[in-house]
Design a protein around this nucleic acid. Structure first.
Length: 743
DNA sequence: TGCGTTGACCCTGGA
DNA sequence: GGTCAACGCA
């Protein structure tokens, strides 16, 4: 592993000057002498470059790499930043830097200080699902009705509290209603339960560091002295706890370098606090502010459109991006009849790009909700266009992956009861609720872990035959795994697979066995790769699985289209961006855009989506979309999103709803808003009738051709001619056909 | 007592 | 369509 140092003969004085031609503002940021600095960096203004160059410059000035701490928004961004810095100053220095997300950095600090905090060094990190298990148990224990205290809502309230650094005690103190008092009880219960499981949730990873810094100022000071320079990317999406953490770390030297864009703040719903940006100068007196407004990414047309849209927001610092790039093509808007047609139109856009010499990996399809990926996925699969869905259920959250990881968690941390109960009868080994109740009782009485309680019951011969055998099986497996804990990770996992019969267990579900087996294979590959890279042991691997996201796992150099939410697209860029589902109620989303603040956040999200594009933007909407709302499936027609109308007509080329052909294009003129909305009202029925003659797919019957349609809305019935004969099927059991193109 | 089946509820976004 | 708790069967 030898990294040749970059030759510096052609760059007297600085490793930065030759490769990075920075503009005046960028250079001012990079050369900032010290003290608090806020860099307002517009989309595509080269902020990653500035951050990277800043770190390299600090090292060049003689700051030791161990004295630099940089927070990024994703693990991916951390990795990229480290790689770039390695390219400038060498791999050794780059490895010594602390670059990571708030959560990853929190884990790093908490592991070092675990003893002081009274938590195990190998603490587990509970994700949303694990957390939900605890919350459900707490709700049951308090004898509450789940309809009054929905787990998701309880989790959200607890999360909000932690992000605001409100302890269970403070929560109880502030509670005014009986409902609030019960929430406080739940919060306290869940928190106690987390600790007794030796676990922290995501929010704890930050909040616990802050409270430790408060309880032990000398520890805070130690970290403050160590990190002479603290840098924060995507500062607009930091929450209160993160602000306090940064504040504490920067207290000693005040060398705080933050980069953010108030127009790209899109995580208000999870506690991001824009006032961290807006009040920066008040929080850090003497702070300097620099603005990066030159965009190097998008064409003039895309930038003008984005500027026009975001100008509708009232609460913003206000800036206008400009670019030296060419004007480029206008944005395109496609109104499709339904989501199936929308998907087909998207497919054609992608094929067009391909025919024009483009690659699929230059394209991304963005949407507001993960549920929208389904129709697109179906269409792209049928058309043979390679794609990758980023988000939805992340890899390490998949059931089979989490099952296997739960076994590994259990070895590292036997107190992890969520992990224990997850695996104790998976695969089936004859252990059921009856035995579980007795194990729990025994564990509670003896103050021991469930595995120990089960072992005691088995030893005493207190279990019926089948359960006794199952208990022996489980306990033996756990023991064998524990004995291999220090060995290579991939061997550990292989042993688990061999010994548990997990793969055979997967085969029980014919429909999903192949996919799930493939995921297990992928897990094996990931484990082997981790072990080979020597990046840490089991504890570190498990932490990584908890914190890694789908975005982090996007591969370079794979020629496929990316399908992802606008949230997940933050920080990425593509030559071609399709934004799908531009309908009122969907984007802006009904539950988010209800008030002004919510609507403005939706608009920022749309702004983020537009500014991901370098050369080409295509916007699509479906006049009629089947959507699920609380209360059941409903079929809904909608109006085109107001955001589309906020794009100046001269920048937008509208294509009429296609009736099968390529769709005629018209150049945007006046009065578009009403034209678009009026067309929508009539489309639902037309869309249904147009289904006649279309090829559709049914899970059981396969490919068929629609003969007739009856009913309406959710009760739409189709008469379809399949190979197996003519059947009447409910619309919801059909997937739309691909070949609407007249041959 | 364990297990297979059935029917409610479901889908904003995500570390 | 997917998941999970509740139900009733073996």
């Amino acid at each position: 592993m030898h990294h040749p140092l970059p030759t510096s003969s052609d760059s007297p004085g600085s490793v930065l000057s030759p490769n990075l031609d920075l503009n005046a503002e960028q250079r001012a940021a990079v050369e900032h002498p010290g003290g608090p600095l806020l860099v307002i960096a517009g989309a595509g203004s080269g902020k990653t470059r500035v951050l990277t160059a800043r770190v390299a410059r600090l090292l060049e000035r003689g700051v030791g790499p161990e004295g630099v701490l940089a927070f990024t928004f994703t693990n991916r961004a951390a990795r990229e930043m480290r790689e770039r810095i390695a390219g400038m100053v060498g791999g050794e220095a780059a490895r010594a830097l602390w670059v990571g997300t708030f959560h990853a950095t929190g884990v790093r600090i908490l592991r070092r200080e675990a003893a002081r905090l009274g938590i195990p060094r190998d603490f587990a990190i509970y994700d949303r699902e694990d957390q939900e298990t605890l919350v459900r148990a707490a709700i049951r224990r308090l004898g509450l009705r789940e309809d009054a205290f929905k787990p998701a809502a309880v989790i959200a309230r607890i999360s909000d509290a932690k992000n605001a650094l409100v302890s269970p005690e403070a929560f109880a103190h502030a509670a005014v209603s009986p409902h609030e008092r019960t929430l406080a009880e739940l919060y306290a219960l869940v928190q106690a339960e987390l600790r007794s499981n030796g676990a922290l949730d995501f929010d704890d990873l930050i909040a616990e560091v802050v409270s430790m810094f408060r309880a032990h100022p000398e520890v805070a000071e130690r970290y403050g002295r160590r990190f002479e320079h603290v840098l924060v990317d995507e500062y607009q999406d930091t929450n209160h706890a993160q602000f306090r953490l940064v504040e504490a770390l920067a207290a000693v030297h005040r060398n705080l370098f933050v980069v953010g864009d108030d127009d790209q703040s899109i995580y208000g719903w999870r506690g991001a606090d824009l006032s961290n940006v807006l009040d920066f100068e008040r929080a850090f007196p003497g702070a300097q502010v620099l603005r990066l407004e030159q965009n190097y990414r998008s064409t003039g047309a895309i930038l003008d459109a984005a500027n026009a849209v975001i100008a509708h927001n009232r609460s913003r610092k206000g800036k206008t991006l400009w670019s030296e790039r060419e004007r480029g093509a206008p944005l395109r808007f496609v109104l499709a009849a339904d989501e199936g047609e929308e998907a087909r139109r998207v497919r054609r856009v992608l094929e067009e790009r391909r025919r024009g010499g483009g690659r699929y990996d230059e394209c991304a399809v963005l949407y507001r909700t993960n549920a929208q990926s389904r129709a697109l996925e179906t269409e792209l699969r049928l058309a043979g266009i390679p794609y990758e869905i980023v988000g939805g259920v992340a890899f390490y959250q998949r059931r089979e992956v989490k099952d296997l990881l739960a076994y590994l968690r259990l070895i590292v941390n036997p107190a992890d009861r969520v992990a224990f109960w997850r695996v104790w009868n998976t695969p089936r080994r004859g252990l059921g609720d009856g035995v579980r109740a007795r194990v729990e009782e025994r564990a509670a009485a003896g103050g021991v872990e469930p595995a120990a309680a089960l072992a005691a019951l088995a030893r005493e011969g207190a279990l019926p035959g089948a359960a006794a055998a199952g208990a022996r099986d489980l306990l033996g497996l756990i023991e064998e795994l524990a004995a291999r804990r220090e060995g290579p990770l991939d061997e550990l996992l292989r042993h688990l697979l061999r010994r548990s019969g997990y793969l055979e267990h997967l085969d029980g579900d014919e429909a999903s066995a192949a996919d799930r087996r493939a995921n297990v294979e992928e897990l094996l590959a990931a484990v082997a790769g981790y072990a080979a890279a020597g990046r840490g042991g089991l504890t570190e691997f498990l932490a990584e699985t908890a914190l890694v996201t789908d975005v982090d796992r996007i591969e370079e150099d794979a020629d496929r289209v990316l399908l992802l939410t606008a949230h997940n697209a933050k920080g990425l860029e593509f030559p071609l961006v399709v934004v799908a589902g531009l309908e009122e109620g969907l984007f802006p989303h009904a539950t988010s855009g209800a008030d002004d603040a919510g609507l403005e956040e939706e608009r920022r999200l749309f702004y983020v989506a537009l500014t991901r594009a370098r050369d080409q933007v295509v916007l699509t909407a479906a006049a009629y979309r089947r959507r699920f709302t609380p209360g059941g499936a409903v079929a809904g027609g909608a109006r085109v999103s107001r955001f589309v109308d906020e794009i100046p007509a001269a920048l937008l080329e509208r294509e009429a709803a296609a009736t099968g052909g390529g769709g005629s294009r018209e150049r945007g003129g006046g009065g578009r808003r009403r034209g678009g909305a009026a067309a929508l009202a009539t489309v639902p029925r037309a869309a249904a009738h147009r289904a006649v003659g279309r090829t559709v797919f049914h899970d059981q019957f396969g490919r068929g051709v629609v003969q007739d349609v009856e009913g309406a809305g959710d009760d739409l019935k189709f008469t379809v001619r399949f190979a197996a004969g003519i059947k009447k099927v409910m619309g919801r059991f059909l997937d739309g056909g691909a070949d609407d193109d007249p041959a």
